[in-house]
């Protein structure tokens, strides 16, 4: 089977005081090749944990993850990561950051040069090739991170709040960029976000997770991502279903947060 299968994954973290936290409980997901899935959920519901398991940085306590029928046991270039910020290598130029993956494979500079040029062109940083990354703005840095990830031509791209640290305007531009990249490259993408709007716009599938224990609460299939490719995202927001879906999800998460607070008060 081609695609990513998260098969009945559970994760608990043992705590020093003898107890444990059930960060994930029986999570099962079947993500087809080329799908774009956004993940929403209140803080602490295990989104990052799930992504770390898929990336291969953590082994789940139960269940397993398969990519194209091969069990995930560790990080690998076929599963690329884009982090929130600060994961670029400051000691390298923009170009060297992007060609990091090919360099690791032992690809010669000549071979990777064309690829790097092409990717920098796509993310609009052609003129910043020789700059140091600390000279770039936050939005530009995330473009570099995207290009760096794409340079390895991964099957799956995992993004943990990639746009979380950007200002609203830059963020909108980057959302369009992510959509365009998705369509152009046909990558499977899992994108964690805290923004309901972002999850709606960038989610062909939208997964809402619930906390304690972390689990899948509800899943949506949405038309907005397809509509948004190559278009102004503000137009997409005028779609008849957009506002109602947004309200529904907001209410859902709001309730979860209330519930958490309520439980915390009970304990206290």
């Amino acid at each position: 089977m081609v695609g990513l299968l998260v098969d009945n994954v559970s994760m608990h973290f043992n705590l020093p005081n003898g107890g444990y936290i059930q960060a994930l409980k029986n999570v099962t997901l079947d993500i087809k090749s080329g799908e774009l899935m956004s993940v929403l959920g209140p803080s602490g519901c295990g989104k990052t944990t799930l992504l770390n398991i898929v990336a291969g940085f953590l082994a789940p306590t139960e269940g397993q993850v398969n990519l194209n029928d091969v069990r995930v046991t560790g990080p690998s270039p076929e599963r690329g990561m884009v982090f929130q910020q600060g994961a670029l290598f400051e000691w390298m130029s923009v170009r060297d950051n992007v060609s990091f993956g090919p360099d690791m494979k032992g690809m010669s500079r000549k071979e990777s040069a064309e690829k790097v040029e092409h990717l920098l062109d796509i993310v609009g940083l052609q003129d910043f090739k020789e700059k140091a990354v600390y000279e770039l703005s936050g939005g530009m840095q995330q473009r570099v991170a995207l290009a760096r990830c794409l340079a390895n031509d991964p099957d799956v791209i995992l993004m943990d709040e990639p746009l979380g640290a950007l200002d609203a305007l830059t963020r909108e531009k980057m959302q369009s960029l992510v959509l365009d990249l998705w369509k152009d490259t046909k990558k499977t993408i899992i994108l964690i976000t805290h923004s309901v709007e972002e999850a709606l716009l960038l989610g062909e599938r939208l997964l809402v997770m619930a906390p304690r224990p972390g689990r899948v609460h509800k899943e949506y299939r949405l038309p907005f991502a397809d509509l948004g490719v190559g278009k102004d995202l503000r137009e997409v927001k005028k779609h008849e279903d957009y506002a109602s879906t947004r309200e529904e999800i907001l209410a859902m998460i709001w309730n979860m947060e209330e519930e958490i607070m309520g439980r915390a008060e009970e304990v206290a």
Binding site: A55, F57, G74, P75, S76, P77, R79, G80, M81, F83, Q84, G86, A87, L88, F89, E90, W91, F100, G101, M104, K105, R148, C149, N152, P154
Partner: peptide, 29 residues
């Protein structure tokens, strides 16, 4: 060294030796 840098490097296919020479050494300078 920020763990996200190490994770990023591993996901980009770096070996342990490459993690040391390309990430940890420059980052600890």
């Amino acid at each position: 060294v920020a763990i996200s840098k190490v994770h990023a490097a591993y996901s980009l296919g770096a070996s342990k030796w490459q993690i040391l020479s390309r990430v940890i050494v420059p980052n600890s300078l």
